[in-house]
């Protein structure tokens, strides 16, 4: 069976006034059928260039890619029939109503709304009370649901979602991921990008992308499992002083602020809680707390960035 997405040595460069910028630096990966595959990386990592190449909207400079077995250059028309694409920027018609947008996208794909309604029912019923409202007047969460309906109305086999959760509140974000998992159960393959590391755990497999290079591809557990060093969560009453203290300590390999705690990795493999408590006692920190934690995807991403 052909894999839904195969990417081989893709290179994309942009010519700027001051030389060239490499958006994609010869990346390769493939996506399995029915998988939720995450492209995790910050702004400028190359996520949108990759999506646009796979969606046949942009030509690569080198390498090749296939979607559903079709070549992104030679067979672009066939690809456009079998994919759904939700771009990062809201791209529906702001001055058409909810209902009109859906009808418009169904019409250009020659799809019948009634016939395909089952696929979007869960999502569409949430925005149906506002079906006569112009799309431009919807909240971020509602716009996102409408965009997803429009991307699904022709029953695509593969769904491409470019940063669907950027700027969306935590409740809508959670609901959105629940919708994606229901679509996966219907057999749709999903390629989704995000700059939020905590969303990696919601994917079956992820590629960590940074400056056009893939740092790692694996299941979220696999990536975390390969971190290979103990991580300590540390806090005390003076967090800023503690951060600088630990960063400057010769026994510390890295120390980063992580919300309520700082995450610390020590140089010596056997060093641990006693050593950290030693530093904090010596420097008289009040309310010192040290505990071992398993590394997050963000810990892994930063360690890989440094390599």
């Amino acid at each position: 069976m052909v894999k839904p997405v195969i990417v081989e040595e893709l290179v994309k460069k942009y010519r700027m006034k001051r030389g060239e910028v490499k958006a994609l630096n010869g990346i390769s990966f493939s996506v399995e059928k029915g998988e939720v595959f995450g492209i995790i990386g910050p702004d400028g990592a190359g996520k949108t260039s990759l999506f646009r190449i796979l969606n046949t909207l942009l030509l690569a400079d080198q390498g090749r890619a296939t979607v559903n077995g079709y070549d992104t250059v030679g067979e672009y028309k066939k690809i456009r029939q079998c994919i759904g694409y939700m771009p990062g920027r809201f791209s529906l018609y702001q001055d058409l109503s909810v209902r009109e947008n859906l009808e418009f996208f169904a019409a250009i794909f020659n799809a019948d709304i009634q016939e395909n309604y089952l696929l979007i029912k869960d999502i569409y019923t949430q925005i149906e009370p506002f079906r006569d409202r112009r799309a431009g007047q919807l909240s971020g969460g509602m716009k996102q649901k409408l965009a997803l309906c429009c991307a699904l109305i022709h029953q695509p086999e593969i769904l491409f979602l470019d940063e669907p959760t950027t700027g969306v509140d935590a409740v809508s974000r959670k609901e959105f991921w629940e919708m994606l998992h229901r679509l996966k159960e219907r057999g749709i393959t999903i390629l989704v990008s995000t700059s939020y590391m905590d969303e990696a755990g919601l994917c079956d497999r992820v590629a960590l992308l940074q400056k056009g290079n893939i740092l790692s591809i694996d299941t979220p557990e696999g990536i975390r499992g390969r971190f290979g060093k103990a991580v300590w969560a540390v806090r005390a009453s003076e967090m800023f002083r503690l951060l600088n203290e630990l960063k400057g300590d010769p026994s510390v390999e890295s120390c980063y602020p992580f919300g309520q705690y700082h995450h610390v990795v020590l140089k010596a493999p056997l060093a641990g809680e006693t050593d950290l408590r030693g530093i904090m006692d010596r420097e008289r920190y009040a309310e010192a707390e040290v505990r071992p934690i398993s590394p997050t995807i963000e810990d892994c991403f930063m360690a890989l960035m440094k390599e």
């Binding site: 700059s195 002083r241 602020p257």
Partner: peptide, 21 residues
């Protein structure tokens, strides 16, 4: 801090801690 890489986000929050200090 939406969208920036984790290293930059950490640096940004260090700057905020410093200002608060």
């Amino acid at each position: 801090t939406g969208g920036v890489d984790p290293m930059m986000r950490k640096e940004f929050w260090s700057t905020i801690y410093e200002a608060s200090d």
